[in-house]
């Protein structure tokens, strides 16, 4: 803003302002139409899912979901039976429960490990710490697929396959490079004076970590937690390989429903919405941290 006021004396002010305004207005119409079209394409599919999940099986099969919106007052089409059915008869409630049991520790464990490691690399002196960090950054890029077969063979040999612990540790291993990288960036930028004065007061490394470093890193921890939580919650591949489908989680259960009942849209729409509830709540309540986590999660250029 201040820049434009500084510039004004150099050119005829009124002319420039008027011209830009009218040009912006002309350019604005196609631009607005474009944005509107994008917003419609980006929301309609999800809206269709949400609306259909509350319509009866017959209504879904006979008319498109948009008819449901047009004839909103036709209450005979609305129902919550789809949710009841998919939650209990189709085991989605159980899957939801298992997803929580997998996701929460799979988020806490890597963050804890990464925070300790990042603290040691950033603030403790030991040979090889630089190289260790470079290796961790390199590992950010290794595709998950490179790890699946050997780890599965070990898991099967020792009966770890299909266990919660196996899932927690797998997600921990796969999430650690990003977690360490993000937390290191934050922890290493804590002012040296804070840690030095704590050390001078006789604080042990453990005390400095738990009482200073962790509380000061809350924003970075929050961002990564959300990122990792959503990643694990939405994951299908790791769950299919290491957890199997004997005990369902939301993603494997939904994928199975698509396979076995691909045309039962009353079940699929309600099921899909149940898998989306938790991420959507996080998205709307913690969007700031969510975005920050996304940004940090992008490959560093």
């Amino acid at each position: 803003m201040s820049d434009t006021t500084v510039k004004k004396p150099y050119v005829k002010p009124s002319a420039v302002a008027g011209e830009t305004k009218s040009r912006a207005l002309i350019a604005g119409i196609p631009a607005r139409a474009f944005i509107l079209a994008i917003v419609v394409i980006w929301t309609i599919p999800t809206l269709g899912l949400l609306v259909s999940s509350f319509r009866t099986q017959i209504a879904i099969a006979e008319t498109g979901w948009w008819h449901g919106l047009i004839n909103f007052t036709d209450f005979s089409q609305w129902t919550i039976a789809n949710y009841e059915r998919v939650l209990f008869a189709d085991d989605m409630a159980n899957a939801f429960f298992n997803s929580l049991l997998i996701t929460i520790p799979s988020t806490v464990i890597p963050i804890t490990m990464a925070a300790f490691a990042a603290y040691a690399i950033a603030w403790m002196i030991f040979p090889g710490r630089k190289i260790l960090f470079v290796i961790i950054v390199g590992l950010l890029i290794v595709p998950l697929q490179m790890a699946l077969i050997p780890v599965l063979r070990v898991y099967t040999r020792h009966g770890i396959n299909g266990t919660y612990l196996g899932m927690w540790l797998a997600h921990t291993g796969f999430g650690l490079p990003l977690a360490t990288y993000m937390l290191y960036g934050y922890i290493s930028s804590i002012p040296k004076s804070i840690l030095e004065s704590a050390h001078a007061d006789g604080a042990t490394p453990w005390m400095m970590f738990t009482r200073l470093v962790l509380p000061l890193s809350i924003p970075a921890i929050a961002s990564f937690s959300i990122f990792q939580f959503l990643w694990v919650w939405n994951d299908l591949l790791v769950a299919l390989v290491f957890f199997g489908t004997r005990r369902p989680i939301v993603t494997t259960r939904l994928a199975e429903l698509v396979g076995s009942r691909g045309q039962s849209w009353h079940v699929l729409t309600a099921g899909a919405f149940i898998t989306m509830v938790v991420p959507l709540i996080i998205f709307f309540s913690l969007q700031r941290y969510f975005v920050r986590g996304m940004m940090a999660g992008s490959v560093k250029g």
């Binding site: 994008i38 917003v39 980006w42 929301t43 599919p45 999800t46 269709g48 899912l49 259909s52 959503l230 919650w233 939405n234 994951d235 299908l236 939301v250 993603t251 939904l254 994928a255 698509v258 691909g262 849209w265 699929l268 729409t269 099921g271 899909a272 898998t275 989306m276 991420p279 959507l280 996080i282 998205f283 969510f290 975005v291 996304m294």
Partner: peptide
């Protein structure tokens, strides 16, 4: 609105688009 799909799982998004 445009960012919203980021929160949805790939499986969930696939169901959404199968329906489309």
């Amino acid at each position: 609105f445009i960012f919203l799909p980021m929160a949805i799982s790939f499986v969930g998004a696939s169901v959404i688009w199968r329906f489309v």
